[in-house]
Design a protein around this nucleic acid. Sequence first.
DNA 1: AATTGTATTAAACGAATGATTGAAACAAAT
DNA 2: ATTTGTTTCAATCATTCGTTTAATACAATT
Lengths: 224, 224
Amino acid sequence: MIETNVLYMAGTLMRGQNYETRDTKERILEAAGEVFVAHGFQSATVREICRKAGVNVAAINYHFRDKEGLYLATLRYCREISFKKYPVYPDVKESEPPEERLRSFINSFVFRVLEEGKASRFAKLVAKEYVQPTNALDILVKETMRPAFTRLFAIVRQLAGKGADDETVRYCCMSIIGQFLFFLYARPVMKRLFKKASFREEEIAAIAEHITLFSLSAIRGLKG
Amino acid sequence: MIETNVLYMAGTLMRGQNYETRDTKERILEAAGEVFVAHGFQSATVREICRKAGVNVAAINYHFRDKEGLYLATLRYCREISFKKYPVYPDVKESEPPEERLRSFINSFVFRVLEEGKASRFAKLVAKEYVQPTNALDILVKETMRPAFTRLFAIVRQLAGKGADDETVRYCCMSIIGQFLFFLYARPVMKRLFKKASFREEEIAAIAEHITLFSLSAIRGLKG
DNA sequence: AATTGTATTAAACGAATGATTGAAACAAAT
DNA sequence: ATTTGTTTCAATCATTCGTTTAATACAATT
């Protein structure tokens, strides 16, 4: 009791009320990111999150209404971190050839999935959402997946040419996204299959380049 | 009390002990398949499984030791159903050209994932195992995934030719598996993105053919 | 007819869960 | 100095979980 009060006072005295609040919320969101990634929404417990964050369990209800409110806030928090570090088109203009735009699209995506750090948390949460959807999936589809798919579709449409029908283009988009999904999902399996689960930056770049070349080659071949 | 006793007696008197036992175990495994697919290992409850199966909760401990034992038995039970209906190579011999063997491999795999019925339960359980591994994953990798990967690797190795190094071949295998994964995982998202989540048999076959052509085209392109 | 082993039952166990409460501590405003 | 509004605290609520128990019912065996 004494110890926690001392810490609390130290925080408040130094930084004032608002900072303390933001600090608490952010500590909770950080801890929630870890725990939701580790266990998924259902199996994660607010108690573990609060223990990791060093706050009382009542803080969840106070700051985020309930467990579901915390989960949604965590998703948005993690997405912001991930997309800030790996933007959609870091340095490629809309006017550049579709090959380069595809390369850039894939590169950002793969790094968002495979990097070792907080920026890959969002991808891991999305992975769980795919397999075990919650109420948050509707929001995710609307805010994140549909825009991404639309962008990819435009690129592939340009690559495939006017000869290809929409269904073929859509299938090709799925084939490309599928290759991301492999690395998004298969890590626990890869760890057991190849005794390897983490990647250095050059390896991630090499994987992105493989997916790019594989996909470009496939689309080119389907065309002719 | 009276009602359940009547039912119980009716079952035993008509079919005898062994049949009754097998029937109970199978009813539990069927119900467990449904519930584990719906909620995953952690969030599934033995109570719901027993309710669906129409048996007492103690039956789990009696027949399967504990929840984990039931889960493992369910995985094996569902795998048997899935692989019996869609065998590894239904009608393609080892001596046929690698293109045909790849087509057959992909076809079986896609049907195991996309069919509407009990045979796709195993794929759905495996999907959950990817994202939220349990102790069963080691067994799954050993008994199911590693053999499948080895078969696929041999096919792609033959397709890519001697010029390609092992790493490239491995990446290509991942690209192919990734395309399966899309359909394995993305159904809840597809349902929201395209307003569609189920496939007729011709559509599944068309998807398998797309993945085959896409992959063959890609590998051919990488070669030259 | 008595015994044995198997299968099922209702009931209860302790542990853990999400959520809530009223009191207390604090900074800021008056 | 007092009041106000915000934030955290310990404690507790009612549920629900997986598992266990002792008793019973039954078929098969002796």
